[in-house]
Amino acid sequence: MLWATLFGLYIIFFPGSLSAHKTTWDDTQIKAAFVYNLTYFIFWDQKDLGDLSQPFHILALGNDDMGDILKKITSHEAVMGHSITVENTPLRPLHEYPIIFVSDNMTSRTRQLQTELHGCHTLLIGENMQFLEQGGMISFICIKKKVKIYYNQRALHAADIHVSAKLYQIAIPLQDAGEFPQ
């Protein structure tokens, strides 16, 4: 319901299309929505999520706006029955976060995060190509004022994260990234 409301607002502000170049809405808001939508296209391991009393934790690093927007978007939503909590600072071990959003200003810490999360099923989402090159898994990159989804298959594989084929239909793999401007 909330999602529909948000989407309605989105359409009001961006009539006709969700195209980024036509909107005056913040890219952060779009990316926040994308982060939430992305939860539907990842096959989460129930064991990792724990019982239903355990919330689905999302960590938004480096961009408080992102965290705030995400909080708003997901305040009444759930992933596989787990309520969603969004945090801007890590309050628990990193492997307890199924999703960690890494803002542009935190891209340099990607490798560190990866090292810390080695062997854990945490989806790392970034905002630029460097993030992917440093071992990030999915990146929302603005190209021609439109947010595109890129992914690093190797990193996903290494983290043993299974992505829906539907997402692959619209996402662009890292090896093809050279075709697009940074």
């Binding site: 299309s17 969700l18 195209s19 779009i30 994308f34 939508n37 539907y40 296209f41 439109k146 947010v147 989804i149 829906s164 539907k166 997402l167 239909q169 619209i170």
Partner: peptide, 8 residues
């Protein structure tokens, strides 16, 4: 569905 939610 993916195209729709990701505006593709």
């Amino acid at each position: 569905s993916a195209s729709l939610v990701f505006n593709d």
